[in-house]
Amino acid sequence: MNLQSLFQDFNPSKFIVHTCLLIFTALFALRIDNYLTWSYWCIFTPIWVWKILVILGAAVGSYVWWRYPHFRMEGEAYIHYKSMLISLALHLILLMFELLVCDKLESNRHLWILVFIPLIFISIVSIAVCIWAVKHDRSFELELFCAVNVLQFIFLALRLDGFIAWSWEVVLVPLWIVMCLSLVGVLYTIIFAGILLRTPEVNAQQRRSSFQTAVGYTFLVIPILIFQVLLANKLDDDIKMSFTAVVSPLFVSFVTLILMSFSAKGGNKWWFGMRKDFCSFVLGACPLLQEYANIAYSSERRTNGVEMQQQADKSDPRNLKKADMFKPVLPIVSIEMPD
């Protein structure tokens, strides 16, 4: 067991986001099926927690940025900090959309097209953000999702307000296109992993990495596609299922995303002013973890340090003579018996 190797590629931002979305999806489905009678403001609690952490993390990071000017000279600190501010702005606009959705579900006093205006605005702005992220080698998963689904958001708003009377299978056409492209990507990863498994020149680490990627994307995309099919049929009254059963495939995708966050790497180092990887920050901030958790355990039987060093020296041909010269000598003690 090596806790450092477990957390050295851990991405806490993705872990928090996917965990909050998993809990929110379960609560929302139970609320629609009337298994829960809570208000929607309580149902959206995981979303509020997510946004509070984003705002708090950006506030602490900004304080550290302005309080310690010499930190700005560390590598690409300016790019990281600017990326954090861009992400904060997008999350604030997304928070406005979520507040409008919650108020619409509670009071029903707005048109859905007005509720979706912040989300449509994010989708348009995300195109420019994606270009900036590619230029500066930054991740842009949320921005890419919003950018490719701008037409889908418009269709959803118009269908919910009754301005169009299309079936839900037609309304979700933009998502069908995205899912088809995703399936092509999954098929590519599976074929690529199969080729690497049959290539003797490839080392075991590359084979294992490609296999894990193929399995991860398969368990991510296929459940989402199943959920989309079930949702379209449910909304068109073609099947009789509860919404909890309809969204159940999404739980598989969210669990997959949570597991993948332990090997996602990346992440902005200015959230909460950490300025370093999450594992290094935690070990540095908690002396007890640095003392006891940052240890690799092995079940192998090892010799003591002197014997290991002697074996290493003897195994090197250049040190054969040197090893013979410094062989340990057993002391001989002469003991004279008294008469």
Rank of each mutant, 00 (worst) to 15 (best):
A133Q: 13
V170G: 01
I195W: 11
V170D: 03
L151M: 01
E169D: 09
A133G: 03
S210L: 00
L181F: 08
I154N: 01
V129G: 01
L144G: 13
G194P: 03
L181G: 12
F192V: 12
R138E: 06
A147G: 11
A133T: 00
A147R: 09
C180R: 05
A147T: 05
V148E: 09
V170Q: 06
L158I: 03
A193P: 02
T199H: 06
V171Q: 00
V184T: 08
S209E: 11
V148Y: 05
I127G: 13
S139D: 14
R208K: 11
I154C: 02
L183Y: 14
S139A: 11
E141H: 13
L160V: 11
Y188Q: 08
C130G: 02
I190R: 13
K135C: 10
S167F: 04
L197E: 08
F153D: 04
I164A: 14
Q206K: 15
A165C: 08
Q212H: 09
I195K: 07
I191H: 06
L183A: 11
I131F: 15
Q152Y: 11
F163G: 03
I195Y: 09
E169C: 05
I190Y: 12
L144N: 13
E201D: 15
S167K: 07
I164T: 15
L183G: 08
V150G: 15
F153T: 01
L196S: 07
F192H: 10
I177K: 10
L197I: 08
V178S: 04
